[in-house]
Design a protein around this nucleic acid. Structure first.
Length: 803
DNA sequence: CTTTTCTGCTTACCT
DNA sequence: ACAGGTAAGCAGAAAAGC
């Protein structure tokens, strides 16, 4: 191979992994060249390492010698250096131990821990490939310019060009504003598996159809011949190879499609070589499947954050986002697939169904990927992992990067069982209908508290440390103290986040809101906000590396004190406070007084507060965290009530929403009562679609692990008995059937019950009536009146009566 | 012995 | 596997009523 001359390569970093060449690890940077080529950049000089924190009982050099003696030929210890670092803000001297084989780090960690004189072993659990991009300060999805030498593309790699890194690698600053997804090849796919009323088994149930689509291209369908699916899977592998996508999107493929395909391919003896290296997809971090050289993104991970959609099927999510409306597509349930396959007259419908699923998946990708790409380059996790990882881990990976830059050692994850601590204040609402109410909100209250009072594990004054009152901030109630200077780990990071976000938001103003530039910046600022807002909860998370209970406790204490002060001031101004929760205040919308309150909070307390929305009317019962508001633009906000809960039947939810809407918009209680009575009548006449009677509840553990008997657990057990796998996290949809005895004996999975079996009276008494009454009760409506006869009154009458 | 009240378990929501 | 605060239903136990 020629080309030993060093050249500059401009490429976008997509993913990172490593391979062993003999006993030497080689980092693989997967990327896209500026010319559209797909490239790999190898780097064989990077070595795994970890730190050893001494406890002081043994001299550092002596400890180093002891560690060197642990060296084994399979992965020799290459060096043990004395280094100066910081650990939770304190200067420390530590040993940096470097070895050869990444997989050996774990064993060395255990061996070193057993030595005398060792306080702890640190950073031994950072995956090697991530370690590399952290140390080289590389962020996925960003563009870099690297000094490289071209090499032959090694056997088994399907990329256009391969290089080795021979010098510097630095961010290409000319491309910071560029859309990271522009020019990337995205492929959506979905599989259909033969099944009839039971969970398919990859050992025998074939993959009958695979649908796939390259962004901008046609939807293709590969079909089995009768029940023989070997060609389908082989054909799929071929199509993936020829499309050569950078991003593969699916819906729930990490939990279903990939494991099924992997197992099925094994059974059939097909090589599932869909990656850019000849290895099959493998389970990776955070339950995600890793496809070498491609970003395998499960869009369900994004959907998990759409809290408005309760049952997160592809159909529901696509419908909610307006990608593919349910009414405009074929809908089938998973257990019908087999039937639609077997019946030649129905097979075309099955094809159409698969097309609609692939179309929906691609549509969701367009909605979700821009945010994912930004979150990836803010958190530093590759796109395929960042959405699979939970909020805590996304922030933590960014913290680890900041620590590396600051010379801070990363604390270990340790098992803790900590007691609870006090959180925020929730005011008792004033029940009833209130007119013209302004909702005031503190902007990012907790992150701002952390910045203002320099809260963090490294600035926390620990027992035995003495500081003057002037040198520290003291949290109210709990008394925890934090050094005013120097600025702590969290303060530095949060300030950077906050100023970065401010800068992006001012940049956004230069672009029209519907421009691609604006949208890109908006996704970026959302990603930054997400991480900033997670910082408080992170500190209170016992699994966090930078766990700090006192810090979290202090933040909520300051929060309580700030909102109490604001409430007191509102009182002094003669502003009636109707309700408040954590960082919000509902007050009478008296613009002049509201303005004075805002100025007080900004000037005297040093926090940002703004009018988030104004309600023309808002209704409270005695309950906290529940209200219904009518906004100035005529929208109904239901908060907390049954209407927004996923574990009530659609019928009850719809009824309650309507009741709230009628009462707030027209003030006519009678009209609302009539509405409810009408619903009950329809229900009793059997005119309500059974799907509206399904109650969905999440199974949080295996059915046998429950202490208390419950309807959804009964339903789950019935499913298991029928050969349908149910796993923790699954939403169980059930209906209540006729009969006597406790409810849990009468629950059935909705697809195993007939309409005739449904206990209509349960839905009247325990769903529709209670949901409606939750609101109407306040206006004197009784259960009897909803179910039988009664008298009339209006909201106006009621309000007059109240005065 | 029956009815009412209390408590624990459970889920899902709000900020 | 970010936090605490809160509402609410159901099952079953405990307490109260008879």
């Amino acid at each position: 191979m020629k080309g030993s001359d060093a050249t500059l390569l401009s490429f976008q970093l997509l993913d990172v992994s490593y391979e062993m060449r003999g006993s030497t690890p080689v980092i693989i940077l997967w990327g896209r060249g500026a010319d559209g080529s797909r490239v790999v950049v190898f780097y064989g000089e990077f070595r795994p390492y970890f730190y050893v924190l001494p406890d002081g009982s043994v001299g550092l050099d002596q400890l180093a010698a002891m560690i060197r003696r642990l060296s084994r030929p399979s992965s020799p210890i290459l060096s043990v250096e004395r280094v100066r670092r910081r650990f939770i803000g304190r200067e420390v001297e530590a040993l940096k131990v470097t070895t050869l084989v990444p997989a050996s780090v774990r064993e060395y960690r255990e061996a070193v821990r057993r030595l005398g004189g060792v306080r702890d072993v640190l950073e031994a659990d950072i995956p090697f490939a991530l370690r590399f991009i952290i140390d080289f300060n590389l962020y996925p999805m960003r563009w870099y310019v690297a000094e490289v030498r071209e090499v032959a593309v090694p056997h088994g790699y399907s990329v256009d060009r391969a290089y080795t890194l021979s010098g510097d690698i630095r961010e290409d600053e000319t491309r910071i504003q560029e859309d990271p997804l522009k020019g990337l090849r995205v492929m959506a796919f979905d599989i259909e598996v033969y099944s009839k009323m039971r969970t398919p088994d990859p050992k025998k149930d074939p993959v009958i159809m695979i649908g796939l689509q390259q962004a901008g291209g046609e939807i293709e369908i590969l079909e089995a011949e009768d029940r023989s699916d070997k060609k389908v899977i082989a054909g799929f592998v071929e199509r993936v190879k020829s499309i050569d996508p950078d991003v593969i999107v699916g819906y729930n493929q990490n939990r279903f499609d990939w494991p099924y395909l992997v197992e099925r391919a094994r059974v059939l003896g097909v090589k599932l070589a869909v990656g850019r290296r000849s290895v099959e997809p493998q389970p990776g971090l955070y339950g995600h499947y890793s496809v070498s050289g491609r970003l395998n993104v499960d869009l369900l991970d994004f959907a998990e954050e759409l809290h408005e959609v309760k049952v997160k099927t592809l159909e529901e999510v696509a419908d909610y986002l307006g990608v593919v409306k349910i009414g405009e597509r074929v809908t089938l349930e998973w257990w019908q697939i087999g039937e639609y396959w077997d019946d030649p007259s129905k097979r075309e419908i099955l094809r159409k169904y698969l097309r609609d699923d692939v179309r929906s998946t691609m549509g969701l990708a367009e909605k979700f990927l821009p945010f994912g790409a930004e979150l990836s380059q803010v958190s530093g996790l590759p796109l395929d992992q960042v959405m699979a990882a939970s909020v805590g881990f996304r922030l933590e990976w960014r913290l680890i990067r900041e620590a590396a830059k600051l010379g801070e050692l990363v604390p270990n994850r340790v098992e803790r069982s900590e007691g609870r601590y006090a959180g925020a204040i929730v005011l008792r609402p004033k029940p009833g209908v209130h007119e013209d109410i302004a909702v005031l909100d503190f902007a990012s209250m907790y992150p701002n508290i952390m910045v203002k009072y320099n809260v963090g594990p490294d600035t926390l004054v620990r027992p035995g440390e003495e500081y003057g009152e002037e040198e520290v901030y003291t949290a109210p109630e709990v008394g925890h103290k934090f050094r005013k200077s120097p600025p702590g780990f969290f303060k530095k990071i949060l300030e950077r986040f906050l100023s970065w976000r401010r800068q992006i938001r001012s940049e956004m103003k230069k672009h029209p809101p519907d421009s691609p530039e604006y949208k890109l910046l908006d996704e970026r600022q959302k990603a930054i906000k997400l991480l900033a807002n997670a910082s408080y909860g992170y500190m209170g998370w016992p699994h966090a590396r930078w766990y700090c209970r006192e810090c979290a406790e202090a933040v909520t204490a300051w929060g309580r004190s700030i909102i109490r002060t604001a409430i007191r001031k509102a009182g002094e101004l003669g502003l009636e406070v109707i309700y408040g929760d954590t960082d919000s205040l509902f007050v009478k919308n008296d613009p002049e007084k509201v303005e004075r309150l805002i100025r007080f909070v900004e000037e005297e307390l040093g926090f940002d507060i703004k009018v988030d929305k104004v309600y023309r009317r808002v209704f409270f019962t005695e309950a906290k965290k529940r209200y219904v508001g009518l906004t100035v633009d005529g929208k109904i906000d239901v908060v907390g009530f049954e209407a927004v809960r996923g574990d009530w039947s659609e019928l009850a939810k719809e009824t309650q929403f309507k009741v709230a809407e009628i009462v707030l918009k027209t003030g006519s209680v009678d009209e609302a009562v009539d509405y409810v009575r009408n619903i009950i009548e329809k229900l009793r006449r059997g005119q309500v679609d059974m799907r509206k009677l399904v109650i969905w509840k999440t199974l949080t553990r295996p059915p046998s692990m429950y202490e208390a008997r419950q309807p959804h657990v009964t339903a789950a057990l019935l499913m298991e008995r029928a050969g349908i796998k149910v796993e923790p996290g699954a939403k169980i949809g059930y209906v209540v059937t006729k009969g006597s005895g406790p409810l849990y004996t009468r629950a059935k999975p909705y697809f195993m019950a007939s309409k005739e079996e449904v206990d209509v009276e349960y839905y009247v008494d325990k769903q529709v009536v209670p949901a409606a009454l939750r609101i109407l009760q306040y206006f004197g409506v009784t259960e009897k009146r909803l179910k039988g006869g009664g008298r009339q009154s209006t909201l106006l009458d009621f309000m007059r009566r109240g005065k």
